[in-house]
């Protein structure tokens, strides 16, 4: 199963949601797979930060569905967030973990999931995120995306995907700072709120 194909599936299911996603090859892939979600997606180069940030966003916007596109390396960096989610039970947070069993962005050395002993969905269930599932086919992935996007409890899908990034796709040119402004202005417009307003004197 290819991550890019999964993203195309997910892309078809989303429109009004907010997305925070992890670093590496998945950034350019999501940028291409879901062009209608570009301003609604925060592209962050932050190992271990993605799901906690998505949770914070979900807390602040309880009426909004928030999607975290995390990775095996990113989740392993901070497994504690699973225990926090298990206790907090955010009803509007859907998490996809792209598990390619490697640190792909630096050339592909294995993560701890590569041995087959470490089961991220089982860890999540043990931490109290009961709706945690591992999928290996596109059909399973699509089915769990539909369930996760409609869930009223935190929902986590570990998507076992092949290594390597989708070739020949357009690169995103913006950096983290520009991405933040784009995302914040999107949230301001859709929510009718001010997050980054004017100074006392301009």
């Amino acid at each position: 199963m290819k991550r890019y194909d999964c993203m195309l599936e997910l892309s078809r299911l989303v429109s009004d949601e907010l997305v925070i996603l992890s670093l590496g090859g998945s950034v350019d892939e999501w940028y291409n797979a879901a062009p209608h979600m570009r301003t609604a997606s925060l592209f962050q180069q932050q190992l271990g930060c993605v799901t906690p940030e998505a949770f914070g966003l979900a807390v602040g916007l309880p009426h909004q569905r928030v999607i975290s596109l995390d990775t095996d390396g990113g989740l392993l960096f901070n497994l504690g967030i699973l225990a926090t989610l298990g206790n907090e039970q955010p009803p509007n947070l859907f998490i996809v973990v792209w598990d390619n069993e490697s640190y792909q962005s630096i050339g592909g050395p294995p993560t701890h999931t590569a041995t087959g002993r470490v089961d991220l969905a089982a860890i999540a269930r043990g931490a109290g995120v009961e709706q945690s599932h591992t999928v290996r086919t596109l059909a399973e992935f699509a089915e769990h995306c539909q369930a996760g996007l409609a869930a009223t409890v935190p929902y986590l899908v570990v998507a076992k995907v092949e290594g390597g990034a989708q070739p020949g796709i357009k690169r995103k040119h913006s950096d983290g700072r520009e991405d933040k402004y784009i995302f914040v202005r999107h949230v301001e417009a859709t929510e009718g709120i001010t997050i980054m307003g004017p100074s006392e004197h301009n």
Binding site: E53, G56, L57, V59, G60, A83, T84
Partner: peptide, 26 residues
Amino acid sequence: LRTIRVTNEGEGASICGGVFLSGQRA
């Protein structure tokens, strides 16, 4: 106040960052 107990302060900082993006203050 909504309180959230975290497992380490790095996780807490990241959650606060997400709250900032929502327009609320953490």
